[in-house]
C-alpha cells in the first residue's frame, strides 16, 4: 500500500512539474530559446506574492490574480527588450544571456530577502486532506494543484489548436520563415509565447511556494525538474510534458520511499535512462534531438 501511496503522491507532484515545464517547452518550440532563468522566474513570482501579502494581507490564494498578469507583462517586455536581441546573436547568445539573468535574479533575491527558506502560508488548506483508503490520504492542496495543472495544460493545448494566435505559435514552431512569409508577425508571436511561459511558471512558482518552502536559489532545481519533465515526455508535445511531469514525480516519490535522501537522484537517473534508451521521449511527436 505504501507503493500505491507513493505513486499517487508522485502523480500529484508531477502535475506541478508539468506546469513548470510547459512554458519551457513552449518557448523552445516557438523560438528555440532555452530560458535558463525559467525556474528563477517562478521563484521571483513567489517572492512577489510574499510582498503583496506583507502589505495587503489576506490568504496568498488571491495573489494569483495579481501575479499572473504581471508575470505575463514582464514576459512580453523581456522578450522585446532582451531575448529578441539575444536571438539575433546566434545559437549561444540566448543561453549566456539567460544564464546571466539567472545569476542576477538569484543573488538579488538573496540580497533582498536573505538566504533563508520561506513559504506561503495558506492556512488550513495546507494540511487538510481527503481519505482515499485507510492507508492513503491525499492533501487537498495537492489535489487542487494537480487539477489546475491538468486544466492549464488542456487549456494551453486548446489555445494552440483552436485560436488564430495559437495557430501562429504552432506555425512559427514548425517553420519560422514560412510562418513569417504567410503574414505572421514573428516578434509579436515570440512575445506572446514568452508571456504565456512566464504566466504559467508564475502559477507553478506560487503553488510550489504553498506546497513546500523555497529559497532564492530554488529556481535552479525547479529548472532542472522542468527540463527533465520535458525530455522524459518528449519534445514538441504538451501531452508529453504532462506525462513527463507525472513520470518524474512518481520516480521521485518512489525514490524517497526507498531512501528519503534519494528522491531527486532517482528522478535524475530516470531522466538519464530515457536519454540513453529512448531519447525521443516517452511520447514524442517530433524529435529535435541530435541523431
Amino acid at each position: 500500500m505504501i507503493w500505491v501511496n507513493a505513486v499517487i503522491q508522485g502523480l500529484l507532484l508531477g502535475g506541478l512539474y508539468a506546469i513548470f515545464a510547459c512554458g519551457l517547452s513552449l518557448m523552445f518550440g516557438v523560438m528555440r530559446l532555452v530560458n535558463l532563468a525559467h525556474g528563477d522566474m517562478g521563484v521571483l513570482a513567489a517572492y512577489f506574492s510574499i510582498i503583496l501579502i506583507e502589505h495587503l494581507g489576506g490568504n496568498p490564494l488571491w495573489t494569483f490574480a495579481a501575479v499572473i498578469p504581471v508575470a505575463a507583462l514582464v514576459g512580453y517586455f523581456l522578450q522585446r527588450l532582451l531575448f529578441d536581441r539575444a536571438l539575433d546573436g546566434g545559437e549561444l547568445s540566448p543561453l549566456l544571456v539567460t544564464f546571466g539573468l539567472s545569476i542576477i535574479i538569484e543573488n538579488l533575491l538573496q540580497q533582498t530577502f536573505g538566504a533563508n527558506d520561506q513559504s506561503l502560508n495558506i492556512g488550513a488548506l495546507s494540511y487538510q486532506s481527503w481519505k482515499v483508503t485507510t492507508d492513503v490520504y491525499v492533501g487537498r492542496l495537492n489535489v487542487i494543484i494537480f487539477v489546475i495543472a491538468v486544466i492549464v495544460i488542456i487549456g494551453l493545448q486548446l489555445f494552440l489548436s483552436k485560436t488564430r494566435t495559437g495557430l501562429a505559435l504552432r506555425a512559427t514552431a514548425d517553420n519560422r520563415r514560412a510562418a513569417s512569409l504567410s503574414g505572421i508577425n514573428p516578434k509579436r508571436t515570440r512575445s506572446i509565447a514568452t508571456a504565456i511561459a512566464l504566466a504559467t511558471v508564475a502559477i507553478g512558482g506560487l503553488f510550489l511556494a504553498m506546497r513546500t518552502s523555497f529559497a532564492p536559489t530554488s529556481g535552479s532545481s525547479d529548472l532542472l525538474f522542468a527540463f527533465e519533465a520535458v525530455i522524459i515526455g518528449g519534445l514538441g508535445s504538451l501531452w508529453g510534458t504532462l506525462i513527463g511531469g507525472f513520470a518524474l514525480g512518481v520516480a521521485q516519490t518512489i525514490g524517497s520511499q526507498i531512501n528519503p535522501a534519494d528522491g531527486i537522484l532517482i528522478g535524475d537517473l530516470v531522466f538519464l535512462a530515457v536519454l540513453a534508451f529512448r531519447p525521443q521521449g516517452l511520447l514524442s511527436l517530433r524529435s529535435v534531438i541530435a541523431r
Partner: peptide, 20 residues
Amino acid sequence: LAFRLRGGYFAIGTWVIAQV
C-alpha cells in the same frame, strides 16, 4: 549521454549530470 542533446538542452543536460 550528453551528446544526445543539442544547444540549450545540452546545457541543462550537463547541469543535471553535474547534479548526479
